[in-house]
């Protein structure tokens, strides 16, 4: 579904920003979802929870922040150093 496509792309972006060794130590993925982005946040949360629980990730948490407009972006990553 739509949110799964979005969630897969979020994970792909995270993978491009971290080394393979750092991926299991990813703690948080911060995402901004605009009110008009055409994305259902609870569905996106469900998809991300499922994907981030699987390797190469190690159970990171997705934190979705809402804002007006149609923005849809990966805002930040938190990694355990």
């Amino acid at each position: 579904m739509h949110e799964m496509s979005i969630a897969l792309e979020v994970c792909r972006i995270a993978e491009t920003r971290l080394t393979p060794e750092a991926l299991p130590r990813l703690l948080t993925v911060g995402i901004v979802v605009g009110d008009d982005a055409g994305v259902e946040p609870s569905n996106l949360q469900f998809c991300l929870d499922a994907l981030l629980a699987q390797p190469p990730f190690g159970g990171a948490t997705a934190k979705i922040a809402r804002q007006p407009g149609d923005e849809l972006r990966v805002d930040y990553l938190e990694v355990d150093e």
Partner: peptide, 10 residues
């Protein structure tokens, strides 16, 4: 915890 600023459109 290291915070990485991404700000990349999905």
């Amino acid at each position: 915890v290291r915070v990485i600023d991404v700000r990349e459109s999905v």
